[in-house]
Design a protein around this nucleic acid. Structure first.
Lengths: 170, 170
DNA sequence: TATTGTTATACTCTATAACTATA
DNA sequence: TATAGTTATAGAGTATAACAATA
């Protein structure tokens, strides 16, 4: 694939071998990302919407601000997303009795159903591909699932500060 | 951020077979997708733009229609994307001498440089996370990279028909 | 005053439909 | 007529800034 042309480049907190490993992981993630869009149903709702629903299902009612932070979007963006989801009947709003400012979002039964259907559809497609994968590779893929979970968790924790993103040029 | 104490139960660990496996893969992909957006803060250009550039770099000059099909977007969308990338100096257009209708897109040196920078930046972040991953898990993740490649390739072949509208779920 | 959330506005990206040019 | 690409227009999704309500 791509070979880092400079063997010097001392990464701040990474060993030398990790550079190559990271490049491989990066390439794989790039490819898998495109894949998700293809294996997902024709965009009944967006990726963020699906992720938000999943979070609500997994963690229960959640404040809007927390949701926004968790999904990596701004508060206004989450307000609008929730409004769309609410209009579609997939989530509900409720005010916190202890704090009048707070809005608690919860997934509805329809939301759970929709999420389940989406997952089923995608799982079917994935299963079809897995079925055609080399057994050894399938084994390797499944063996790496816990690692992916850990990786994702670590990566989500790894952003106390926004790593100098150069003033977002555009 | 404050409380991600979920004991991590992505798949109801059971030896049921491909169904469970697919669900696990689906969950991992869902999570990794969100991750890509966070680990790719450059936002210099979109995910599709990056993927398109990568395709052009990997496969050489390409017809616009082929690019659109390959990236899973419509022809007009690709026309506009290419126009943006061309305006940014990252790709170039050329007419096919054999067929006046055809437009061949090629990546420019600036495009290659930009792509390399993007990859480097992301690889650094990934390396930082990998560094904190449990050695056994890191091992498992790296061992699964070829499988991910194969999986992605198979999945891309698995769509003889373009997407149709309606009948979204399942 | 600080927070939680909403509204206003602008921009990016994508899709469908209609169009031009070449084969 | 069929194919390759563009233009026109609409809509989703997001961000920043300004605002209202509650603590």
């Amino acid at each position: 694939m791509d070979n880092p042309p400079d063997p010097v480049a001392p990464a701040p907190a990474a060993a030398a071998g990790d550079d190559v490993a990271a490049a491989g992981v990066a390439a794989a993630m790039e490819r898998l990302t495109r894949l998700v869009r293809r294996l997902s149903p024709p965009a009944e709702y967006s990726l963020t919407a699906a992720a938000t629903l999943a979070t609500l299902e997994r963690s229960g009612p959640c404040r809007l601000t927390d949701l926004a932070a968790r999904e990596g979007v701004t508060q206004p963006a989450m307000t609008q997303l929730i409004s769309r989801l609410q209009a579609a009947g997939l989530v509900g709003r409720a005010t916190d009795p202890h704090d009048g400012r707070v809005v608690l979002i919860h997934i509805s039964d329809a939301g759970r159903t929709s999420l389940a259907e989406r997952r089923t559809g995608r799982a079917e497609r994935i299963a079809r591909v897995l079925d055609r994968l080399d057994p050894a590779e399938r084994e390797a893929l499944l063996a790496a699932l816990p690692a992916m979970e850990s990786f994702a968790r670590l990566a989500e924790e790894d952003r106390p500060h926004a790593h100098r993103k150069g003033a977002a040029s555009s």
